[in-house]
Amino acid sequence: MYRFIVRRLASGVVLIAILTTLTFFLLYLSGGDIARRIVGEGATEEAVQAKAHELGLDRSVWSQFTDWLSHAVSGDLGSSWFNGQPVSDAISSRLSVTLSLVIGATLLTAVLATVLGVVAATRGGWVDRVVQFLGVLGHAIPNFLIAIGLVSLLAVQWHWFDATGYTEFADSPSRWLSSITLPVLALVTGAVSSVAQQVRGAVIDALRQDYVRTLRSRGLSETRVIYRHVLRNAAGPALSYLGVQFVGLIGGAVIIEQIFAIPGLGQVAVGATSQGDIPLVMGLVMVTAVIVVVLNLLVDLAQGWLNPKVRHA
């Protein structure tokens, strides 16, 4: 198990290294005349030259890269080209907001999807049909459409919730809950329906296995067979899928934050992208990659705990 973790961790580090290198060269090679954009169209050639020199843009890409890398390794991701704020500050102040949104949505998804999926698989009938129908709709409708629908009906038309804005939990728990309900709901709808489908499929698969009959023949009750044995075996595939959904939810959050004016990473990302604030974009890519790698490691660990074959590999 120990070697398994080390191996996964090492491959994660390599993955992050390759990804950031690729992104760096993509961004810095195609950046165009950035210095002019920063100082403004009307600026003199000297001012542009000075800005380029200040940002190190006049050096070779390779030396810029080694420079960035040596700082990045020690946690310094550089500063924004536009307002000079350190990238790590800009990200860390927003990270918790986005993570709480995404993790909250993931947990809610896991619980709801498991209940729905298991009930649909074991009871069949109308529950099954409803879950399948919702699965199709949830997959099909982009979550930003759901978000827009929620805002325009529940907030703008009926005033049940705040349409936009975000309140820190520490400031007012009830306002926090009100401000986060709609965004989480918008994120969760799609995820729940497709994860529930996966859980349903995994449970049905597990129920078809020969050992289920043998367990029943030993006098174990149906509840025991399903909740102890079938669910344990169905958890592996469902968990992998939940991991994929988490990555998808990070992407979804970028758009959702924009709709609900939530000051998370998504806002930073959209701003940095449209300005062409390369150091900030670079930092965002790296942080997201780290989150995904850590998540995959957690999923792998959970798989090892669930599945003895993985543990002993």
């Binding site: 992407g251 449209s274 890519v285």
Partner: peptide, 17 residues
């Protein structure tokens, strides 16, 4: 490698470039 980034984030980086 391609799946290590959420699609939207990767597209934002591409858009920046």
């Amino acid at each position: 490698l391609l799946m290590a980034l959420p699609g939207v984030v990767a597209l934002l980086a591409v858009r920046a470039a």
